[in-house]
Every structure is written in C-alpha cells, then in structure tokens.
Amino acid sequence: MKPTKAFAVIFPGQGSQTVGMLNALALSHSLVQSTFAEASQILGYDLWDLVHHDPNDLLNQTEYTQPALVATGVAIWRIWLDEIGILPTIMAGHSLGEYTALVCSEAIAFDDALHLARLRGQLMQSAVKPTIGAMAAIIGLSDSAVEALCLSASDTTHKVSPANYNADGQLVIAGHTPAVERAIVAAKTLGAKLAKRLNVSVPSHCDLMFPIAAQLEDALNIINIQAPQIPVIQNVEASIADTPAAIRAMLVRQVYQPVRWTATIRKLAAFNCQLSIECGPAKVLTGLAKRTAPLLPCFPIFDAETLAAAASMVRQLT
C-alpha cells in the first residue's frame, strides 16, 4: 500500500500545450513514450508525433489539444506513482484538467477520457462559428467588478460573462464578440491593468457552449464512472461530488459554466494540503497558485529536475 501525505496534485487545461512538450522527461522516463503509444492506439493517430512535430499545425486545434493534454498529465502521474509512489490527499484539474484528475484518481478509464476529450473538443469547436464568440483576459479588477461590467456590456442578443476565475484579479471572460469588445473597453475605463482579447477559436465556459451540453451528457452517460480513489475538487462548484452521478453532472455543467479555480485552490488549503504539485507541460497553474495562495507552495513537474525537486518537497512533509 502506498503512503499518503497532505499534498494536492493539480492538472492544467488548454493553454499549457507546446510543440515538443515532455521531450526532456521522455529522455529519462520510458513511461512517457508508453503512455503516448497507448493513447495513439486508442485515438487512431500518432499522438507523440503530433505533440513533437505537429506537421499539420494541429496541436492548437482543440480536438487534438484536449487528448494531448490528458495524455501528458497521465504520463507524468504514472511516473510519479512508479518512481515516488506517495499519494496525495486530493486532486483537481483546471477545465479539461478535471478529466485528467478523474483518470488519475481512477474514476474514469484512460481510454474513456481520451475519447471524451476528443469529443469535447469537437463539440466545443462546432458549437459556434469562428467569429461569433471571443474570450478576453481581464487583469487588475475584482471578481465583482468584472461580473458587473459583463452585465453592463451584455444586451438581449449579445452576452458576455466570466469564464475562468483564475486568480485574485485575474479573470477570463467569454461570450459574443461584440459584448466581449464592449467589456474590454469598460474594463480599461475602470483601470484594469490588462484587458485583451485572447487568440482562441472557441469561447469556452459560457452560455454559447450550452447547446453542446446534451451531447456531452449523452457521451458521459455511456461511460462507467467509479468512486475516485482520491477525492477530486471539481471546477463548477469548487467542491467534491459525492456520487459518480454528481461527478458526471458537474462535468456537463463545466463546459458552459465558469471555472472557479481561485476557489478550488483555496479549497486545497481547507483540506489541509501543505503543498501542491502540477502535472503538466509547463507551470501555468503554479503561477496562478502563487497569486491565490502564496502560503501553499506549488511545484511543477515537466522534466527530471522538476520531478526530483517536487519529490524532495513531498518526502519532507510530515
């Protein structure tokens, strides 16, 4: 039986991907290659080649990004289990990262998560025509100020709302392009440090995604979801579902409701976590955690050195 210590494992979502990700870790750990080989067989295309060479510029297309990030998180987690073998008390994932967390907590099978991630990406891409929706980052305004300016920028036909509560004073908004543009102007007027449109093709986590919820639910209804071996804090309520049916319901809502990441990170502290490790290709969540909970250190793992550093910190926990 593996020992458990009071730390959290967190998994990033879209935006963390880069061509060549996990290259360094793959040189020292064969589990990276074997995990990607398994994923390639399930998906029916060479995921490792796509992630490493991206010959057709597919990695930033959401239906390819999402399975690639699930495989990346799972590969790092498998290395952690194999080499370090210390279990966390809790897990969480940002947006798509929630699927990775549910795989690593043994609630969802790896192959089911890959199929779901691909379908989720395809559905999100198909939900709206490219120019209809937009997303923007708003930095330097409070949650309530951004919520209020989204309301004032929305009208009967064009809506905008908070999509990601990433950290204190760091939000992403999403919605119809004209409303997002109005919100950007309003945010600048109010003194936001940054109010900028993001270069994304899909306006995630907003009402524009609601029409795909039913199809995502249909797909979730045909997969087995087990009780997780390690509890997972889910995005939409920053809470732990108490049944597999509740896990499924929160995954459906997550596609059209905001990611409450600030509250999720605070919840880790409330569950007595002493630190967290980020299993992903970069350190996006580490930066956000530093802003939200500076007293809850986060250590990213993306190569042999960062793995050793994170392991050293976790081993020293009482």
């Binding site: 399930i42 008390t89 809790i90 609630a107 099978a109 790896f110 192959d111 089911d112 199929h115 045909i222 997969i223 087995n224 979801i225 087990q226 009780a227 997780p228 509890p231 732990i240 579902a241 108490d242 049944t243 597999p244 049916a245 896990i247 502290a269 409330a270 569950f271 007595n272 002493q274 630190l275 007293l295 809850l296 250190p297 910190m313």
Partner: peptide
C-alpha cells in the same frame, strides 16, 4: 524556505460508489 500553512483538519469526503446500469469496463473494453 517553504512556509507551510497548518489548517484545521478537514476529513476528506468519501465518494459513494453507485451500482452502474452499464456493463463493466471502459468503452474500448
């Protein structure tokens, strides 16, 4: 130097397993 917050112990909730109406195994299986 890592400063670690010590917070009141919160028991981790246990997720209740439910009988599934689906055949066992993943989609591929």
């Amino acid at each position: 130097q890592v400063i670690i917050p010590v917070l009141p112990n919160t028991n981790n909730p246990v997720v209740t397993a439910e009988p599934s109406l689906l055949p066992p195994g993943s989609m591929t299986a």
